[in-house]
Simulated scan of single mutants.
Amino acid sequence: MDAAEAGSSLGQTRHIDRASARPPLPRWVPLVCGVMFGAAVVLQGPNGGMSGLTAPLIGLALALGAYALIVAIRARQGAPRRPVSAAPWITTVVAAGALSTSSLNSSNTSELRWLYVASGAVVAGIVWYRLQRKAR
Protein backbone atom coordinates (compact mmCIF):
# COMPACT_ATOMS: atom_id res chain seq x y z
CA MET A 1 0.00 0.00 0.00
CA ASP A 2 1.50 3.30 -1.05
CA ALA A 3 1.13 6.65 0.74
CA ALA A 4 -1.70 7.98 -1.48
CA GLU A 5 -3.79 4.86 -0.95
CA ALA A 6 -3.21 4.96 2.81
CA GLY A 7 -4.18 8.65 2.96
CA SER A 8 -7.35 7.99 0.99
CA SER A 9 -8.28 5.09 3.24
CA LEU A 10 -7.63 7.17 6.35
CA GLY A 11 -9.74 10.05 4.98
CA GLN A 12 -12.65 7.71 4.27
CA THR A 13 -12.39 6.24 7.75
CA ARG A 14 -12.52 9.70 9.33
CA HIS A 15 -15.52 10.67 7.18
CA ILE A 16 -17.41 7.52 8.19
CA ASP A 17 -16.52 8.07 11.84
CA ARG A 18 -17.80 11.68 11.73
CA ALA A 19 -21.01 10.64 9.96
CA SER A 20 -21.76 7.98 12.55
CA ALA A 21 -21.05 10.38 15.42
CA ARG A 22 -23.49 13.00 14.03
CA PRO A 23 -26.68 11.28 12.84
CA PRO A 24 -28.86 13.29 10.43
CA LEU A 25 -31.60 15.58 11.70
CA PRO A 26 -35.26 14.77 10.97
CA ARG A 27 -36.60 16.49 7.84
CA TRP A 28 -38.96 18.85 9.69
CA VAL A 29 -36.30 20.40 11.93
CA PRO A 30 -34.65 22.74 9.35
CA LEU A 31 -37.96 24.32 8.36
CA VAL A 32 -39.21 24.79 11.93
CA CYS A 33 -35.91 26.22 13.17
CA GLY A 34 -35.56 28.49 10.13
CA VAL A 35 -39.03 29.94 10.70
CA MET A 36 -38.39 30.37 14.44
CA PHE A 37 -35.07 32.17 13.93
CA GLY A 38 -36.51 34.31 11.12
CA ALA A 39 -39.49 35.30 13.26
CA ALA A 40 -37.12 36.13 16.11
CA VAL A 41 -35.29 38.60 13.87
CA VAL A 42 -38.52 40.15 12.56
CA LEU A 43 -39.76 40.66 16.13
CA GLN A 44 -36.67 42.73 16.95
CA GLY A 45 -37.95 45.50 14.69
CA PRO A 46 -40.27 48.36 15.55
CA ASN A 47 -43.70 47.05 16.38
CA GLY A 48 -46.70 49.33 16.86
CA GLY A 49 -48.95 46.64 18.34
CA MET A 50 -46.81 45.55 21.31
CA SER A 51 -45.47 47.77 24.01
CA GLY A 52 -41.87 48.09 25.19
CA LEU A 53 -39.74 44.98 25.08
CA THR A 54 -42.57 42.46 24.62
CA ALA A 55 -41.83 41.70 20.95
CA PRO A 56 -38.02 41.46 21.39
CA LEU A 57 -38.46 39.14 24.38
CA ILE A 58 -40.83 36.92 22.39
CA GLY A 59 -38.22 36.88 19.62
CA LEU A 60 -35.53 35.90 22.10
CA ALA A 61 -37.76 33.09 23.39
CA LEU A 62 -38.28 31.84 19.82
CA ALA A 63 -34.54 31.82 19.08
CA LEU A 64 -33.72 30.04 22.33
CA GLY A 65 -36.53 27.57 21.67
CA ALA A 66 -35.14 26.71 18.24
CA TYR A 67 -31.68 26.22 19.69
CA ALA A 68 -33.10 24.05 22.51
CA LEU A 69 -34.98 21.98 19.93
CA ILE A 70 -31.78 21.19 18.05
CA VAL A 71 -29.90 20.42 21.27
CA ALA A 72 -32.70 18.13 22.47
CA ILE A 73 -32.84 16.22 19.19
CA ARG A 74 -29.07 15.82 19.16
CA ALA A 75 -29.11 14.62 22.77
CA ARG A 76 -31.85 12.08 21.97
CA GLN A 77 -29.76 10.83 19.05
CA GLY A 78 -26.80 10.40 21.39
CA ALA A 79 -24.59 12.76 19.40
CA PRO A 80 -21.69 14.28 21.33
CA ARG A 81 -21.80 18.02 21.91
CA ARG A 82 -19.21 20.13 20.15
CA PRO A 83 -17.35 22.81 22.06
CA VAL A 84 -18.86 26.19 21.20
CA SER A 85 -16.79 29.31 20.65
CA ALA A 86 -17.95 32.45 22.44
CA ALA A 87 -17.20 34.80 19.53
CA PRO A 88 -20.32 34.05 17.41
CA TRP A 89 -22.56 34.37 20.46
CA ILE A 90 -21.05 37.71 21.47
CA THR A 91 -21.37 39.03 17.90
CA THR A 92 -25.00 37.93 17.72
CA VAL A 93 -25.93 39.54 21.04
CA VAL A 94 -24.21 42.83 20.14
CA ALA A 95 -25.84 42.93 16.68
CA ALA A 96 -29.30 42.13 18.08
CA GLY A 97 -28.86 44.77 20.76
CA ALA A 98 -27.82 47.36 18.19
CA LEU A 99 -30.81 46.56 15.96
CA SER A 100 -33.21 46.63 18.91
CA THR A 101 -31.81 49.94 20.14
CA SER A 102 -32.06 51.48 16.69
CA SER A 103 -35.68 50.37 16.42
CA LEU A 104 -36.56 51.94 19.77
CA ASN A 105 -34.95 55.26 18.78
CA SER A 106 -36.17 55.51 15.20
CA SER A 107 -38.79 58.04 14.20
CA ASN A 108 -39.73 56.54 10.83
CA THR A 109 -40.66 52.99 11.79
CA SER A 110 -42.63 52.06 8.67
CA GLU A 111 -39.55 52.16 6.42
CA LEU A 112 -37.31 50.50 8.98
CA ARG A 113 -39.76 47.61 9.44
CA TRP A 114 -38.92 46.29 5.97
CA LEU A 115 -35.27 45.98 6.99
CA TYR A 116 -36.23 43.58 9.76
CA VAL A 117 -38.60 41.59 7.55
CA ALA A 118 -35.88 41.23 4.90
CA SER A 119 -33.29 40.32 7.55
CA GLY A 120 -35.67 37.76 9.02
CA ALA A 121 -36.22 36.17 5.62
CA VAL A 122 -32.46 35.99 5.03
CA VAL A 123 -31.81 34.49 8.47
CA ALA A 124 -34.60 31.93 7.97
CA GLY A 125 -33.10 30.94 4.61
CA ILE A 126 -29.59 30.61 6.01
CA VAL A 127 -30.70 28.55 9.01
CA TRP A 128 -32.86 26.32 6.80
CA TYR A 129 -30.02 25.77 4.31
CA ARG A 130 -27.41 25.00 6.96
CA LEU A 131 -29.65 22.56 8.82
CA GLN A 132 -31.12 21.05 5.66
CA ARG A 133 -27.67 19.83 4.66
CA LYS A 134 -27.63 17.81 7.89
CA ALA A 135 -31.17 16.43 7.50
CA ARG A 136 -32.10 13.05 6.03
Rank of each mutant, 00 (worst) to 15 (best):
Q44G: 04
T91G: 12
F37W: 12
L43K: 05
T54F: 15
A68F: 14
L25V: 01
W28K: 02
L57V: 12
Y67P: 00
S20W: 11
L43P: 04
I73W: 07
P23C: 11
P24H: 10
S85G: 08
V93G: 02
S85N: 07
P56G: 07
V32F: 14
G48I: 00
I58G: 04
V71R: 14
G65L: 07
L62D: 07
A55I: 04
A39Y: 09
V84M: 14
P26M: 10
A66P: 10
V41W: 12
R27S: 12
P80M: 01
V41S: 05
I70A: 09
F37S: 10
A19I: 00
Y67Q: 11
T91F: 14
V84G: 01
M36R: 08
P56S: 07
P30M: 07
I90E: 02
I73Y: 01
S51C: 00
L25K: 01
G49C: 00
L64N: 02
A68P: 07
G45L: 08
P88N: 06
G45D: 03
I90Y: 05
G34P: 08
S20M: 14
I58H: 07
G34N: 10
G49I: 06
P83V: 05
P24S: 02
V84Y: 09
Q44Y: 09
W28D: 02
V84E: 15
I90Q: 03
L62C: 04
T92K: 05
P30K: 06
I73F: 08
G52Y: 10
A87I: 15
N47D: 13
P26S: 08
A63K: 00
W28V: 05
A21P: 00
L25N: 09
P30V: 12
P24W: 07
A87V: 15
R76L: 10
N47A: 00
A21H: 14
A55P: 08
I70F: 10
R22I: 13
V84K: 08
A63V: 01
G38F: 05
G48R: 06
C33V: 15
A86R: 12
V42F: 11
L43Q: 02
G48D: 15
Q44N: 09
R82G: 07
